[in-house]
Design a protein around this nucleic acid. Structure first.
Lengths: 191, 191
DNA sequence: ACGTTTGCAATACGACTGCAATGTATCGCG
DNA sequence: CGCGATACATTGCAGTCGTATTGCAAACGT
């Protein structure tokens, strides 16, 4: 049995347990032992697949960003640029359980990255990519009277902030969607 | 000597040490001993003024929110509603060292509150107050074509998101200010 | 067939944690 | 002048943490 395991699969199993734990009890409760218990395995196995805790953490973070991008690309049949922009931004908001989990992990990692410059740099590249993609779509949509780059950055900051407020239960999900749509209406005009 | 100490003052001294620690090394490094060391006192004294760690944490959080509100109220000579709005929102962005510290603490607490409903509820009230205040100013300014409540919520989410990105070094300070001004221009028209 | 590698379990270690208990010095008050 | 309350300091405890070490069974290469 031992030789025949998929490394990637095991690591994702453990990272999923980590996410559940982080979303339910906070990042501070994430320890090798707790992750092992949540996943129903021994702590030794966790150590086998992640040599250090930091390795486990960054793997989980990378997994989350990958999944968000993946999902954003997936659910996009040929639509107008405006619809693409909206559906992408909706993928970032915590509107269902998986996205809630992802937002929790992202938030925890952002708080961590705010203090560890090494993590912060790793985080900068995918964010810039997404901003560029958004800006292109905005240009296509021809929201002529605003700078696309700035508008893209503003939209991303907006959904980040909205996600923050939804997670901390200051704001309901529908209100967040409404706020996003209001901003899109401001940029594009009424649909 | 013992009887003649100002309780509030001592607690703020300790909370300041906590903030410095949280901003420099992350919330996870905040422990009774570290706070004591940072403040240059014994851990016993910390225990004397905060019976539990949670008590210390919530005090620090309350202190931060109080200071932000205080500062927002203070630096407001009679101005146009638009200027009031802008200066208030600028008070939230991490544009100098004290505000950077405060943003760090707020971020860490938000991540914490996303998991502890009890903290989240304590956090909801001042946020709603600020939103209401902002909405009033927007009404005064007569940005007629948008719902003031929604615009206020959107602006707060925007500065939250911008703060997040500035802290995690994805975005420079001037860019954040520019993004805010762009949004204000969108709402109010060119100054 | 067999030794090496891989997958995992169990345990031990030193550092650190929040917290309680205890001791001691200093003040206000009767 | 006492005497209780306040303001600390010191120490100890039970627990958790990340990590290193060791052990062992199963699969593979030869």
């Amino acid at each position: 049995m031992p030789r025949k395991v998929d490394h990637r699969e095991r690591r994702e199993l453990l990272a999923d347990a980590l996410m559940r734990l982080a979303a339910a009890e906070g990042l501070e409760k994430v320890s090798l032992r707790h992750v092992a218990a949540e996943a129903g395995v021994s702590t030794g196995m966790v150590q086998h697949y992640f040599r250090t805790k930091d390795e486990m953490m960054t793997f989980a973070y990378d997994m989350v960003t990958d999944r968000i991008l993946e999902r954003s690309m997936a659910a996009s049949p040929p639509e107008t640029p405006r619809e693409v922009v909206r559906s992408l931004l909706l993928q970032v908001l915590p509107l269902d359980e998986t996205r809630r989990l992802e937002n929790h992990v992202m938030l925890a990692f952002l708080a961590y990255a705010a203090v560890k410059p090494s993590i912060a740099s790793e985080l900068r590249e995918p964010a810039a990519a997404m901003r560029g993609f958004l800006a292109d779509k905005l240009r296509e949509a021809g929201a002529g009277h605003v700078d696309p780059e700035r508008a893209a950055a503003g939209l991303l900051a907006l959904v980040d902030g909205l996600g923050l407020q939804v997670l901390s239960q200051q704001y309901a999900e529908e209100q967040a969607v409404a706020a996003l749509d209001a901003q899109l209406a401001l940029l594009f005009g009424r649909p």
